[in-house]
Design a protein around this nucleic acid. Structure first.
Lengths: 262, 262
DNA sequence: CGGTGTGAACGTCTTCACAGCA
DNA sequence: TGCTGTGAAGACGTTCACACCG
């Protein structure tokens, strides 16, 4: 939610579906790997497999960007890398501030995936005076009193909140007041922001809870094994791997019907 | 993305929509807060605001669980907390293993949100012999050679991968072979798993890239300001706050995938 | 009345299937 | 011939609006 839209109600022309935008980074990662191996071109089928989606979806996604492929051949890796990077705005430098340098904040500060994608950690900010000046991942921590000044001087528009939940909203308010318009929130709280500000959240405990839901369901299934799928089914050891991303779409039948607990 | 499915193609009957499942943890968190303040009941409107969604969506979501509300009154907080916890499978204990105890793994090991939701860190595993035996967040790190034994002894079914991308797939294979059927992946790689195994991924760099996309778009908008929205628009200081939450999967206004680093 | 529960309208995303171009 | 690009169909998710009940 949030995030994502809130913008113009599906502006004319340039509208790329949010679901597509969310997958572009995935394609970019797969393409970058191919580029490093000096692979010149890829088919939608190959790239889709590498990114963990199905080819129809990938082609449809790319069609929103324009016609960057060659029929009968595939896509030019380098060219696509450039086009997607540009579309995502990664051809420019994005200074980012991380607020809350606890275990998580420190881990994020040292995360290598930042720099490699055009993001630069402009500053680490923490409210604890004892942290001030101490270097974390090679960057000296600054005190939160200077938050506004730091953001203004570096022209920061993206902020990462890794503080305890209790202070997340006030940190958010200060970031927004100082000019930040995009926030990545790791604190387990719902943040309120003015229109025009994007917030994306990452909640570890939520992800685990979703896994637990499905896990619980699996347990109840074992016994009620369905009729089909005789022992002939090849239970290859390491084989039958299915890329996780998309939905399985497996057997034609209806798959296990019910399950359910009562 | 990702993640999430691979399950049954939306089984009939008792199937709770994936989008709803992704929001249940959100409702649970809001309800828990109300519970701690001893609030007896809430209306869909109030709870929705606290969870960062709209009331119609919340009521629809709850309708999939059953009719737990009282018309003209609202929902009983304690009762709902219980029902949602049960639905998510949080009334039982879920032992979890974290593989890869670097900065991120250590941060996850010390993350408080786990224990408070029925998740117990059963073991920390790392391939570096120098880490073996060293306590992280009060739990001694064990060597990866013992991975299979650890999983079997504790009956672990949920694994968290926080290793470098290069070894994520092999760690994943070992976890699966040892009996793990749900994986939370923080490594920036697409994991292949057999049918029946769930994988959810959290990729920080992807989240930032999505923010950058929208951020870039904002910059280009200023000038070409569109017709509507005359200067009359009330630019309230701290007012017009729009709740952002939600995470879950995609959806219009919604959010898209999930999260973090990687 | 007030607020839940839900059928129906609506919008978005995914999948299909094939026309069309290199 | 092979693979892209895309209209159309279908699945899924959200929002509306109101019947219904406490």
């Amino acid at each position: 939610m949030a995030t994502g839209r809130t913008h113009r109600p599906a502006t004319r022309s340039r509208g790329i579906p949010e679901a597509t935008v969310a997958r572009l980074p995935l394609y970019l990662r797969a393409l970058t790997a191919l580029s490093e191996r000096s692979v010149p071109t890829v088919s939608s089928e190959e790239l889709a497999a590498a990114a963990g989606v199905n080819s129809a979806k990938l082609r449809k996604d790319f069609s929103y960007l324009g016609s960057y492929g060659t029929r009968g051949v595939g896509y030019d890796v380098e060219y696509l890398v450039y086009q997607i990077s540009r579309e995502l705005g990664l051809t420019q430098d994005w200074p980012v501030v991380i607020v809350g340098i606890g275990n998580l904040g420190a881990a994020l500060a040292g995360y290598g995936g930042f720099a490699s994608r055009g993001f630069r950690v402009a500053a680490l900010i923490d409210a604890d005076p004892a942290m001030t000046g101490r270097p974390v991942a090679g960057i000296p921590v600054q005190h939160s009193d200077d938050l506004e000044k730091i953001i203004a001087e570096d022209g920061v528009s993206i902020g990462v909140i890794a503080t305890p939940a209790g202070v997340a909203q006030q940190v958010c308010d200060r970031l927004v007041a100082a000019g930040v318009t995009s926030i990545l929130n790791f604190a387990p709280t719902v943040l309120s922001v003015p229109d025009g500000v994007d917030v994306r959240k990452v909640d570890l405990s939520i992800e685990l809870q979703i896994l637990a839901f499905h896990e619980q369901r699996k347990a109840g299934e074992e016994p009620g094994d369905d009729s089909a799928a005789p022992a002939a089914a090849p239970v290859v050891p390491q084989a039958a791997t299915r890329t996780t991303a998309e939905s399985g779409r497996k057997g034609p039948d209806g798959d296990v019907p019910a399950v359910m607990p009562a």
